[in-house]
């Protein structure tokens, strides 16, 4: 037998028995105390303002005078507000172009820079640079490049034979302003999503391509039947992020067009900003914010459902 049992042990001092229920409560409190610092910060700076904004959507408030209950006034106002209509459709147009264009450009870049080409890392850095560069700095450069009269882009177009009267006015032209903002957004963000796609591409087993080679697939068929389906989870993530980001766009518009000319590039968040901090109608701007929230929520739910259904169909 072991000698461990022979060692004399001193009895523990008697402790008051703790009931099982109390022990559970104590355990829970300990756990809560660990998440408290983060949760308190989230509650004060995020959750509180969100709840307040929801409530404010049904109030009148100019930020200084007392808050008054407005019922559905702010809601009805949405239907008569032409600027809101413009902002709503501009947001849809912006998202409708930015999401697919960024998806295509970032995927194309990722596929290109996943090949064994000379200077691959340099080009990856170049593609990623706009994302990390200061928005203010790149917007200034962009505005210079696309300046209707002195910008090098129009100069090149002119050299290529475009008639001076047909040269685009870019950010200054109401017909071209949205296209300018869209191009800027795609260029600025594609590097970031390229990195995500690169990670996705590197996760695809090379054996699948070899199997496809043996099966007789061409380069294009391998992309269609192996790469794209294998990247589906990445594409889903990228598109969810892009859609949310596009609906929330503000800073890029602010730096390039300030929503103009007229309302040609005015988007929902810009309208919220104008209503809240230019017109000081915090109640109505909260209502627009609520509409934006519901819009993003519905689209994201639809997207998740669609992906789930597709997965089950092919399972």
């Amino acid at each position: 037998m072991s000698v461990i049992a022979d060692t004399p042990t001193r009895p523990l001092p008697a402790r008051a028995p703790i009931s099982r229920r109390w022990r559970k409560v104590l355990n829970a409190l300990t756990a809560y105390s660990f998440i408290a610092p983060n949760f308190i910060g989230f509650a004060v700076f995020t959750l509180g303002p969100i709840v307040f904004a929801f409530a404010l959507a049904f109030m009148h408030w100019d930020g200084s005078n007392p808050i008054r209950f407005a019922g559905l006034d702010n809601f009805w106002k949405l239907f008569s507000d032409r600027v809101f209509h413009a902002a709503f459709w501009n947001t849809i147009i912006y998202t409708g172009f930015v999401v697919p264009l960024t998806l295509i450009c970032s995927l194309a870049l990722a596929v290109l820079l996943n090949q064994k080409i000379f200077g691959r890392n340099f080009f990856r850095t170049v593609a990623f640079f706009p994302y990390v560069a200061s928005l203010v700095a790149v917007a200034v450069v962009w505005n210079m490049m696309f300046h209707p009269e002195f910008g090098p882009v129009n100069m090149v177009l002119y050299t290529l034979g475009v008639d001076p009267s047909d040269l685009p006015g870019w950010a200054a032209d109401r017909h071209w302003a949205m296209a300018t903002v869209i191009m800027f957004s795609v260029w600025k963000n594609m590097g970031y999503f390229m990195v995500i796609y690169l990670a996705g591409l590197q996760g695809i087993s090379s054996e699948l391509y070899e199997a496809a080679d043996i099966d007789g697939a061409s380069g294009g068929q391998k992309f269609r039947f192996v790469t794209l389906p294998q990247l589906a989870p990445t594409t889903f993530f990228v598109s969810v992020m892009l859609i949310i980001q596009s609906f929330k766009v503000f800073d890029q518009i602010f730096m390039i067009t300030q929503g103009g000319p007229g309302t040609s590039t005015l988007v929902l968040v810009y309208h919220i900003y104008n209503e809240a901090f230019i017109s000081w109608d915090l109640g109505y701007s909260s209502m627009v914010a609520l509409v934006l929230f519901l819009l993003v929520l519905v689209i994201t739910i639809v997207q998740f459902r669609w992906t789930q259904d597709r997965d089950e169909d092919t399972a």
């Binding site: 054996e207 199997a211 389906p229 092919t314």
Partner: peptide, 15 residues
């Protein structure tokens, strides 16, 4: 020719 791979290399997204 046809080849059978060590890790099978079946296309995971296809039935």
């Amino acid at each position: 020719i046809a080849m059978v791979f060590q890790n099978y290399a079946l296309y995971p997204h296809m039935t």
